[in-house]
Design a protein around this nucleic acid. Sequence first.
DNA 1: CGGATAGTTGAGTTATCTCAAATGCAGTGG
DNA 2: CCACTGCATTTGAGATAACTCAACTATCCG
Lengths: 279, 279
Amino acid sequence: MLKVGEVASTTETSSEAFRARRNAGTRDGVAGAGMEISGGTYLPTCNGCFVRKTGACPGFGVKGDPDSNAQRGVQPVQSQIQVFPARRPILHPREEADFVPVICSGWAATSISLSNGRKQIVSFLLAGEAASMNYLFEACAGRAIEAVSQVSCRKFRRNDMRDAVMQNPSLVASLGRALGEERERSDQLSLDLSRRSAEARIARLIWSLFERLRKKGQAQDSVIDFPVRQQQLADATGLTAVHVCKVLSRFRSNKLLRLDGRKLTLLDQKRLQEFVEWR
Amino acid sequence: MLKVGEVASTTETSSEAFRARRNAGTRDGVAGAGMEISGGTYLPTCNGCFVRKTGACPGFGVKGDPDSNAQRGVQPVQSQIQVFPARRPILHPREEADFVPVICSGWAATSISLSNGRKQIVSFLLAGEAASMNYLFEACAGRAIEAVSQVSCRKFRRNDMRDAVMQNPSLVASLGRALGEERERSDQLSLDLSRRSAEARIARLIWSLFERLRKKGQAQDSVIDFPVRQQQLADATGLTAVHVCKVLSRFRSNKLLRLDGRKLTLLDQKRLQEFVEWR
DNA sequence: CGGATAGTTGAGTTATCTCAAATGCAGTGG
DNA sequence: CCACTGCATTTGAGATAACTCAACTATCCG
């Protein structure tokens, strides 16, 4: 069983962890945000990310998986899976890494920082998301990745991964779509930071995280796990932690949402969504 | 001779314009910012962009061009070249275009807008720059492109272009590098918008534009053509035109730069560069 | 239980915005 | 060549969203 800090190097061996998860996960048809084992250890809970389609993920290279390319004779790409406790760095901003990092469970964040400590979180990464398609080509210089909640992260060998994608037109198409989504998000981030009010930025961030989890089947009704600190919300919205706090309490008193423990409940999706589209 | 608004469809025919330019351009070894013809018409002045390496640009598919893949038997990709007057839209934000736009001469800007008119310029495009590598895969939904100065823009058929790139490993590598640069720039933009002062944003923008032109050999000493309006500087830095004006006049009175007519002179590169690295 | 981390609240400051009026500059038509 | 129009820039005065600082409380974790 995989413990915090342990590394499992693998081409196809450590897929037991995945198989265990998948069985547990599909038992009731709902994928939870993380399966807690005695002692707070989490197992991967992703439903498969971009890599799954390539047939390169050992977690899904299992016979009979309809989404897997295993049957088509694609070889899994060598990878390591590794577990990080919350708030720990996963990848340093100047690390010349030759791998593609993928979040298998938990929440992570990618950020860039000024030397005076000021920081911008560029994106949150949820279970089943590659950090960025850019890693297929080269390390994202300057970007740090850190764990928000406890995270398990799989690192695929870049060159093998890239070649596997390039030789398959339908994967190239997926790559293009993924790159497009990244671009769209980063455009919207710029627009948020420059032209939207603090309220709108926070509402939009929360809404988009909720939507992403909902699409993965990880929202129960209108409540989601929300391990993000206010300081991190501030880093993601270009605000101050103090100001985030004030806006959030305004939201609370307006009955837009509830946020306690590490659970987030959307109480008035309609009004919240107005922020998303406008202002 | 190509006039404003005219369209030249071509696979390799309209390369005369390019050949003319190249001859003129290389006469004294310096590429000017635009070759003025009687009546204010400009001809392309790029030194070749990403597309040149693919051998797909008819402007450079000429025998004996060492950078060209023409000798290696690569077919030029079908394209149209088109001239736009300053301040005119080149590509509408929701246009489902099946081509890759490349700026052959002049300045353009890509931007995204809110429905209330607020706007963020995501990048300036200089002669010899593709609008974004994303266009190789799909249209950049939501992004508008508009001419800043007079622009000539070549549009390559997307699918042919993409296939040409994908089947050549060294082009894939260039693509990766280009995507990385785009990511880096958009990361830095977010960081600017959220965490840097108005002074720093403007100084950095000006500095980076200057550097890009200098690398293309389009800076005479420390002066460049600078067709950008203050409103556009504001749209690019997330500020107000009024505030941009105030910051610029502070820069002027501090003898950091001169900016009149449509010429920009950097008077104190050292002090300006301090903004670039810090704050 | 104690120390560290995270969140809350209030008071005062400031960078940037909005509004408005004045100036300059380029292009147009007579 | 001139008056006229429309856009870009400049400048000042006042408003405000978000910031900083600081003290306090709540929560987490060993």
